[in-house]
């Protein structure tokens, strides 16, 4: 649905943030854009949102060129929206409900419908019991959930997430993985990150950015086992890929699968470490 062709962007100070980037967000249900700090990930997402105008190249949405008129952008942002890295910068109201409803009210939706949508999107991020607390009493992870709910409420077909896992505790990271998995069934999710383990588990197609250029792309298995490619991008292998490549473990998509399959193959009973993986609070090392 979204296609980026030959996109370049140069900042006012002459820095080339993006150089002839080609991407096709049809390549997977959840697309990962990985790259080191300053590789152009955030700039790319802002360009897709229509916040910044590329110096050259084009972005097409359902084969239609992204136009920058006020009305067209308004339409565009109903189909495509973005969760910012810092939830503080996305939350304007101190009342959670009002903030989640913000995007819907801007579209002049009926309050009854808004109520339903706000409830269900807060549900999707497990925030309902906290619905009446003011934002400044929430933890960082809870603010993150509110910012995600605010975007889910608008029900866009594509959600961009800029560094979604940064600053989150292990448990919140697991629940974010679950949210992305569930949501990628109904819509397309594009995640930019340098959290290799996170991207490895949630994305099914990967673009590697380095110095504003796409230097590699493919399925997670292909990209994450390519040590040379990752090194060129100043990245490293996810641990699941590394123990496969260097220690001969079978290549699994998640820690849970790894541990559960291991247990099954050894026919072991008793302590099932894999079941703790989604709830990391109970996780212990094998030799503990």
């Amino acid at each position: 649905m979204i296609r980026i062709e030959g996109l370049s962007y140069t900042y006012d100070d002459g820095t080339h943030a993006l150089k002839r980037v080609d991407m096709d967000f049809n390549a997977g249900r959840s697309i990962g854009i990985i790259g080191a700090n300053g590789s152009g990930k955030s700039t790319l997402l802002l360009a897709v949102m229509g916040v910044i105008k590329a110096s050259s190249g084009r972005i097409t949405v359902q084969d239609e060129l992204l136009k920058f008129g006020k009305k067209r952008l308004r339409q565009h942002r109903q189909h495509v929206n973005m969760v910012f890295q810092d939830p503080e910068k996305q939350i304007f109201f101190s009342r959670i409900y009002d903030d989640v409803a913000f995007g819907l009210r801007n579209l002049d939706m009926d309050e009854k419908l808004i109520h339903k949508k706000v409830r269900s999107s807060l549900d999707k991020v497990d925030m309902t019991p906290l619905g009446n607390k003011p934002v400044h009493f929430l933890s960082y992870g809870q603010k993150k959930r509110v910012s995600i709910a605010g975007i889910l409420a608008m029900d866009p077909e594509v959600i961009l997430m800029d560094e979604p896992s940064s600053g989150l505790d292990p448990q919140m990271k697991e629940s974010l993985k679950r949210i992305i998995h569930t949501q990628s069934r109904d819509r397309r999710i594009v995640v930019s990150s340098h959290d290799m383990d996170f991207i490895y588990e949630v994305c099914d197609y990967i673009y590697v950015l380095s110095g504003g250029q796409v230097i590699g792309e493919g399925t997670p298995t292909k990209v994450f086992l390519d040590k040379g490619l990752l090194e060129r991008a100043s990245l490293k292998m996810p641990w699941l890929a590394a123990i496969h490549a260097y220690l001969g473990f079978p290549l699994e998509r998640s820690a849970k699968e790894l541990f559960e399959n291991d247990r099954r193959s050894k026919n072991e009973e008793g302590n099932n470490i894999g079941q703790f993986w989604n709830d990391t609070s109970g996780y212990k090392r094998k030799d503990d």
Binding site: L73, R77, Q78, D86, R105, N106, I114
Partner: peptide, 21 residues
Amino acid sequence: RYDAMVISLECRNYNGQFKMG
């Protein structure tokens, strides 16, 4: 903050009013 807010507002289709229902 102001710059970030403008971008974020724009993405969320702000049109001049902070609606509160």
